[in-house]
Design a protein around this nucleic acid. Sequence first.
DNA 1: TTAATTTGTTAGTCTAATCTAACTTTATTA
DNA 2: TAATAAAGTTAGATTAGACTAACAAATTAA
Lengths: 217, 217
Amino acid sequence: MITFTEENYLKNLLLLSMEHEGVSVLMLSKKLGIKMPTVTSMMKKFAVKGFVNFSPYKQITLTASGKSEALLVLRKHRLTETFLTRVMGIGWEEVHSIAEQIEHIQSPLFFGKMDEMLHYPETDPHGEPIPTKEGVLIQQPKMRLSACRVGETVRLTGVNDSSKEFLTFLNSKGLKPGVRGKIEHVEPYDSSLTIICGDRKEVLSKTIADKVLVELM
Amino acid sequence: MITFTEENYLKNLLLLSMEHEGVSVLMLSKKLGIKMPTVTSMMKKFAVKGFVNFSPYKQITLTASGKSEALLVLRKHRLTETFLTRVMGIGWEEVHSIAEQIEHIQSPLFFGKMDEMLHYPETDPHGEPIPTKEGVLIQQPKMRLSACRVGETVRLTGVNDSSKEFLTFLNSKGLKPGVRGKIEHVEPYDSSLTIICGDRKEVLSKTIADKVLVELM
DNA sequence: TTAATTTGTTAGTCTAATCTAACTTTATTA
DNA sequence: TAATAAAGTTAGATTAGACTAACAAATTAA
Ligand SMILES: [Mn+2]
Ligand SMILES: [Mn+2]
Ligand SMILES: [Mn+2]
Ligand SMILES: [Mn+2]
């Protein structure tokens, strides 16, 4: 039996290892908001359980078993977010904190029904891919809006930050996955960027444009 | 902040106090499947928190504050069960164990949406009333099928036991809330009862008929 | 009304998950 | 390369929630 706490460690370990080759105790500690000694002792426990490869002062890597458990939690998280927006009509800026709790429900039947009702969705409301039941995760390449050039037409596909604050800000600019826009201007001085989406023209700082993911059209 | 564990104690304390005036440590211990000393120490904690009135060797009673917290948990449980059956199409024999987990989710928004999608339901799939947001619980009088007499026509309104095993058994007899039937025979020897529902004729032992709740038509 | 049974409490132990303080190892910088 | 800083570990404490064993109170039966 995997506990609530263990599921959180596993999921965040997976998220970190998708961005970096080898995860440090410090990174995981910061991600979870848990002090380093606590993380160290959990990693020792995980090594015994066979979820990670870990020896003192070395990087942490997930084993096949740890990764498959982690993928299941990530699947439950993203499936839930999709369900909350598509079926229940909850805003994409609100779903993360609810999914953070529901991802720990133990009921294959419940998540199976979700999947069925959503017709086996492939991405969550933030544009992130949903791991399959078999534990397969297809990572599509991500391009930052900040990397686009003047004149390019893009489609918003995702975000780098699912916090309520950031998503509420994007809502206020009319930006969400699926929206198309054309880069009108990039200011050389501060790299801020002007984008035209439908009848709206918005200026986005580099900080923002770094967190918005797009595909070229 | 009320924990997962505390919510379970509160809800079960409420359920017991709806049937008995004053709850004993033993009763709560049996209901929760937790040993008596553990229950005693939790009740001491609850007394300090102001959730219960409790002094050694006396009965436990919920305070107004404890009752209102308990009603909120019961509301989340029953709302969830209703959502799982009506929106997600999960069988009434499966929903209890899932609701047992989801009732601990902390998100008024989530439960508010559920309520809205279900058009503010008043009873759960087992026929139990759902406490209102304001903490009002309307207990309709319950009549046992075993108390009915030959010739009476009844409507199944609820059950006394929401275990998967029992509900699966009722499913096999075609019995669920809303179904109507006529008592054809009551066997004096063992109080078993024969009921006609539509084109089916079923014989139910007293054990079963005691757990099936009906209203006379 | 005494004895037996049931119910309840106290005391002490355990595990999971967290923390802080102190120390050690590794990496960086002067 | 030696000093400093950053990252990581060890040791020990804490809290929540559970347990068992032993004892005490209340209830029931003889
Ligand atoms: Mn979580
Ligand atoms: Mn997401
Ligand atoms: Mn529960
Ligand atoms: Mn129910």
